[in-house]
């Protein structure tokens, strides 16, 4: 068994909710009641558990997961090779842009990997230019050329 770290304390019902409600939430008048029936509880219990797991950070959200590209917006994965001596300063410059949604340090010559989220495709080039001017470093763009189907399978 792999070692586990700081795992939230979940009971059977919490696990069933996570495993069965990652998609297909019903579009009917009383969707919590319908989802709860399949889990063998009532709507109030389900809502209370969702509230608890949201408050504890077990769930980041409950609701629709939007695909920004389908709204006309764009995500772009990009990376830079940042000299160690300037790493924190560059991180601050990059993070200062609202369009930078995530930024991770990774182990490679390309050691800073971030995602730009913008509402229009035209904003991408502008964003890259601003980062290159601010940091004096080249931004390597990794646009998604093809997305392969991924099943939902995060289970607990």
């Amino acid at each position: 068994m792999p070692e586990r770290h700081a795992v939230a304390d979940l009971d059977e019902l919490d696990r069933a909710i996570i495993n069965r409600l990652q998609g297909d939430f019903p579009l009917c008048d009383e969707p919590y009641a319908e989802a709860a029936r399949e889990l063998g509880v009532d709507a109030g219990t389900l809502i209370e558990r969702l509230r608890k797991m949201l408050a504890e950070g077990v769930l980041t959200r409950f609701g629709p997961m939007f695909q920004v590209e389908r709204m006309g917006g764009r995500y772009l994965l990009a990376a830079m090779a940042v000299p160690e001596a300037h790493y924190d300063a560059v991180a601050q410059q990059v993070n200062a842009l609202d369009e930078v949604a995530h930024n991770y340090r990774r182990e490679h010559e390309l050691n800073m990997w971030f995602v730009l989220a913008v509402e229009t495709p035209a904003a991408i080039a502008d964003c890259i230019a601003r980062i290159e001017v601010a940091t004096g470093l080249k931004v390597y763009a990794f646009p998604k050329q093809r997305e392969f189907f991924v099943e939902m399978k995060l289970t607990v």
Binding site: L50, G63, Q67
Partner: peptide, 9 residues
């Protein structure tokens, strides 16, 4: 536009 609707762990 919506990938799916439900719990995001």
């Amino acid at each position: 536009v919506i990938r799916r609707m439900g719990a995001v762990p």
